[in-house]
């Protein structure tokens, strides 16, 4: 749980009485030199009238990482990305990218950022090619024609048709190419794989990985857990407009935890495996489901005494993380 130590503001919102939070926060911005942050927000709050968009959000994205912004619909993911691009103005707090204030240096920032909106809308009469040309012209910078062609080929997109003839998935691809083609330093992708077929989804994830390997930074929002698990270095979990946890994906998922289902010849008595360091989470007349932290050696040695017929690994997923934070029944993992 190292990240929490680095992120005092991420922890703050968990405390309930909102009135007491801001006083404690020092107004001075002390840029953390040790950590090269690309995106940084401090007690960022957006109200839509009386309705809350996000509250006291402290986000920190490091250079060169893929940061997954995870949460159910309406949690405030899109609002946060819009504040970063100065599309929505914060009610309180502030946000910066590359150390520049998002509101004051919006143009300079956006020159280095590629954005895929969550609901990507297009001008219907244009062809995708004309659209890309227009983007390049407005951005006012030379871009790599060959790379653009590579992108359209990899995403399996035919860019010669008018956009209104495209399906939702194809429009999404157009938006992706437009965001990626300038090789921006920072990619803000709002649900990048939504509406795409599985093969193309894999391509998108591969492109994100390539961006990271080139040293670029990616902040993507999602409610698709396997996807976040597959490509993100860290995840921030947002709920009701508050960032409630920031975790390293590796530590969280691939690290210390195992979850096993064991089928026995003779069912061991309750509590026996727990002595060996496991936690029993479920049992039928043949099976026992256990969670183990650390080494499996002791547990398995004890288990074979009862004749193990079968062993199934049930790896932890972010869904379990979600359940841990949200409690059962409040998530919609695969929309």
């Amino acid at each position: 749980m190292t990240p929490e130590a680095e992120e005092p503001s991420a922890e703050a919102p968990i405390e309930e009485p909102a009135a007491e939070i801001p006083i404690a926060e020092p107004p001075a911005e002390a840029p953390d030199v040790a950590e090269d942050l690309v995106v940084e927000t401090e007690s960022l709050t957006v109200y839509y009238g009386r309705r809350r968009g996000i509250a006291q959000l402290g986000l920190a994205v490091r250079r060169g990482e893929v940061y997954g912004f995870l949460g159910p619909n309406g949690a405030g993911k899109t609002t946060t990305l819009r504040v970063l691009l100065d599309i929505v103005r914060p009610t309180l707090g502030h946000a910066s990218i590359f150390g520049l204030d998002c509101q004051r240096h919006g143009v300079a920032i956006r020159r280095r950022v590629g954005y895929l909106p969550g609901e990507f809308s297009v001008y219907p009469k244009l062809t995708a090619d004309a659209y890309f040309n227009m983007v390049a012209a407005i951005r006012g910078e030379p871009y790599d024609e060959a790379y653009r062609r590579t992108l359209t080929e990899r995403l399996n997109l035919d860019p010669t048709h008018p956009l209104h003839t495209y399906s939702r998935g194809n429009k999404q691809k157009v938006g992706l190419v437009a965001a990626l083609m300038g090789r921006p330093e920072l990619l803000l992708l709002d649900e990048p794989t939504a509406g795409l077929e599985p093969l193309v989804q894999q391509q998108v994830l591969a492109l994100v990985r390539e961006a990271r390997s080139e040293g670029r930074t990616v902040l993507l929002s999602s409610h698709n857990l396997p996807e976040v698990q597959a490509i993100c270095d860290r995840v921030g979990i947002i709920r009701d407009g508050r960032l409630i946890a920031v975790e390293e994906v590796d530590a969280l998922v691939r690290g210390q935890y195992h979850r096993l289902r064991l089928r026995f010849e003779h069912l061991p008595p309750a509590g026996l495996l727990e002595e060996a360091g496991a936690r029993e989470v479920g049992r039928t007349d043949q099976d026992v489901m256990i969670e183990v932290r650390g080494s499996l050696n002791q547990v398995l040695t004890r288990a074979v005494e009862y004749g193990v017929l079968d062993l199934e690994d049930h790896p932890f997923t972010l869904e379990d993380v979600f359940l841990a934070y949200y409690g059962a029944g409040t998530i919609e993992p695969y929309a």
């Binding site: 909102a18 009135a19 801001p22 709050t45 009238g49 819009r82 599309i87 929505v88 103005r89 309180l92």
Partner: peptide, 24 residues
């Protein structure tokens, strides 16, 4: 001056509760 994409009437535009504003 305003937030875009927020289909809000002027009186519904972002404004924090008084409590938060004074604190800020």
């Amino acid at each position: 001056r305003r937030s875009l994409t927020v289909a809000a009437w002027p009186w519904q535009r972002p404004r924090p509760p008084k409590r938060l504003r004074t604190i800020a």
